[in-house]
């Protein structure tokens, strides 16, 4: 499973990644990152291994492997690393070096859809609003939730929340957990009608420009609707 080919140090340019700002050269090889990582050992992923490969200048090989895409970017490694190495930053950088056609799975396709339509599924606005209102009706039919409605694009609300695409696709029931809590708490909340996508696959695929676009849209909603607090569960 793991790559077993011989590493020829003579053929490597160890200085290649040295200018990167992630402090990877200070690694003590202590392994605390891998000890904390929920994905270490899965399909060949190992944060300590990644740090060392970059330190040795093995950029090409790392970019071409699949295992750097296993990382969930949870950040436990960086939180613990005694040398303050920014491992998630390293992961992002490696991912950004890969050609977009070679980004694994649906990550880039979903991102393209989101950049073009405001959500990973290319779900039209009307369909989206219909689904939200449909779920709201079901909630309103339950005892204690009479009169429940879903506030969309409400100016001046206290909280803006985003929506993960699966919640308007295969897991619509899960919307109810959020919304019932808001209702019971008497919260003043709202969701956007467009560019509502809660995931940011620009972040996951190391596509900084796309990540910025997705984030700016959410920030734009906050400005437009005059809302100070963002609840971004993704």
């Amino acid at each position: 499973m793991e790559n077993q080919s011989v590493i020829a140090l003579n053929a490597l340019d160890h200085g290649r990644c040295r200018p990167w700002p992630f402090l990877q050269d200070f690694c003590l090889t202590c392994g605390i990152c891998a000890g904390a990582c929920p994905a270490s050992g899965v399909d060949g992923f190992d944060p300590r291994k990644l740090v060392r490969m970059i330190s040795l200048g093995m950029e090409d090989e790392t970019v071409s492997e699949r295992w750097p895409w296993i990382c969930t970017m949870c950040g436990k490694c960086a939180n613990l690393c005694p040398m303050e190495i920014d491992i998630p930053g390293l992961v992002q950088k490696i991912r950004s070096r890969r050609r977009r056609e070679e980004v694994p799975g649906i990550l880039h396709k979903g991102l393209e859809a989101a950049l073009e339509t405001g959500n990973n599924l290319r779900l039209p606005k009307d369909d989206y609003v219909f689904i939200l209102e449909d779920v709201a009706e079901e909630i309103a039919a339950e005892p204690g939730f009479e009169g429940f409605t879903v506030p969309i694009d409400k100016t001046g609300a206290r909280i803006l929340t985003t929506i993960h695409n699966k919640l308007v696709n295969t897991h619509t029931e899960d919307l109810k957990h959020w919304w019932k809590i808001f209702h019971a708490a008497g919260e003043d909340w709202t969701v956007p009608s467009e560019n509502w996508e809660g995931t940011n696959w620009g972040y996951f695929t190391g596509d900084d420009a796309a990540m910025k676009t997705m984030t700016s849209r959410i920030a734009g909603h906050m400005e437009r609707l005059e809302i100070d607090t963002l609840l971004w569960p993704e």
Binding site: C30, G31, I32, A34, G35, A36, K76, C77, L80
Partner: peptide
């Protein structure tokens, strides 16, 4: 027993 890594959690 000696193990050459530091636990993470």
């Amino acid at each position: 027993r000696l193990i050459r890594s530091i636990p993470g959690d």
